[in-house]
């Protein structure tokens, strides 16, 4: 790793609690200090997609003074609800740093996260490095020897800025929320790069499990998940699967299934379905558990 490597930490805010954001800033600052000792320059850029800006100019001025450890710390209110993908594109497509650390705003980095996420890029074939989430680790599979994984969660990952810009960031025409990280991961792989799951880099993501050990998606996730899974399936060469998923959801009366069906049909009629990628399925592997209907984009070590 050469000296003076630069990283932009970026996140899209949406009506986040300021106390949570302060904790995230504290953690990011600690990580930036460890990185700085290794010759890594870290800047932070937050985009706010909230209806009204979370921070006033005065408040952000105080934050800039308090977190002066960053090379640069900047806040932009978008003035629109951009969603995750578009918001990150607004932050990342004009970035000038060597790397982007894309994360959810409430994620807490450990002091070593930046350094540990950068390390795998010593291999030029690595295109994206994903952090390990705690307390609930994602159960998707990865190769224990090579650490390669088939897709990376958008909760926290690092990517060379040049690659992000070459791919033109997230597909915001197709996805507003959820599955854009899967789509982006597969596009990184389609570009000939590997995804690396960095088991050393733990980050805190406030998720909980139930008293039966299961993960219960929020209503928002449930509402958007079906449509985005349909679009993802269609885009990555599984059109029949998409139709089958939709019919199963309608038959079960799944929450949001009617809206998803109508939106999918509307896009189809208007010619706005995404262009199909990877028709030979060299990258995308989509399966569904027949028993409980869960859709998976990689092997799962276990079910949550």
């Amino acid at each position: 790793m050469s000296q003076q490597v630069s990283v932009q930490i970026q996140a899209v805010l949406y009506q986040n609690d300021k106390i949570e954001l302060t904790r995230a800033l504290d953690a990011a600052k600690a990580a930036a200090k460890v990185a700085w000792e290794k010759g890594i320059q870290v800047s932070l850029l937050w985009g706010d997609a909230s209806p009204e800006g979370i921070y006033s100019e005065e408040e952000w001025g105080q934050i800039q003074r308090k977190y002066a450890a960053f090379q640069k710390i900047e806040y932009r209110w978008f003035g629109e609800n951009t969603g995750y993908g578009k918001g990150n594109n607004l932050l990342g497509l004009n970035a000038t740093t060597d790397y982007l650390l894309v994360m959810n705003p409430e994620i807490l980095l450990s002091p070593r996260t930046i350094v540990d996420l950068l390390a795998p890029f010593a291999d030029p074939q690595v295109g994206l490095v994903e952090a390990r989430q705690i307390p609930v680790e994602h159960p998707k599979g990865f190769d224990l020897q090579t650490k390669e994984t088939e897709w990376a969660s958008g909760a926290c990952f690092m990517i060379p800025t040049a690659l992000y810009q070459e791919l033109e960031g997230f597909d915001t025409e197709t996805f507003f929320m959820y599955c854009e990280d899967v789509d982006f991961s597969w596009r990184v792989r389609l570009a000939g790069k590997k995804l690396y799951y960095q088991t050393q880099a733990g980050v805190f993501h406030a998720r909980r499990l139930s008293d039966t050990g299961e993960y219960k998606p929020s209503l928002t996730e449930a509402k958007y998940a079906l449509l985005t899974e349909l679009l993802l399936s269609y885009k990555w060469g599984y059109p029949e699967f998409a139709q089958k998923q939709l019919q199963m959801a309608l038959d079960r009366g799944d929450f949001g299934s009617q809206e998803a069906a109508e939106e999918f049909a509307r896009r189809e009629a208007e010619g706005r379905l995404p262009k199909m990628q990877d028709p030979e399925h060299k990258i995308a592997k989509i399966t569904q558990n027949e028993r409980h209907g869960g859709v998976y984009f990689t092997t799962q070590r276990y079910i949550l």
Binding site: R112, D116, A119, R132, E137, P139, F142, L144, Q198, T199, Q200, G202, L209, S210, D211, T212, G213, R301, Y302, I303, L304
Partner: peptide
């Protein structure tokens, strides 16, 4: 909950780790 994890050796003095199986809720 209880959950089995596995240490992942690394080239540095800071090992990685990962879950081996889903959580056990028998004490819940």
């Amino acid at each position: 909950l209880a959950q089995e994890w596995s240490k992942i050796e690394s080239k540095t003095d800071w090992p990685g780790s990962t879950t081996v199986s889903g959580p056990d809720a028998s004490a819940c």
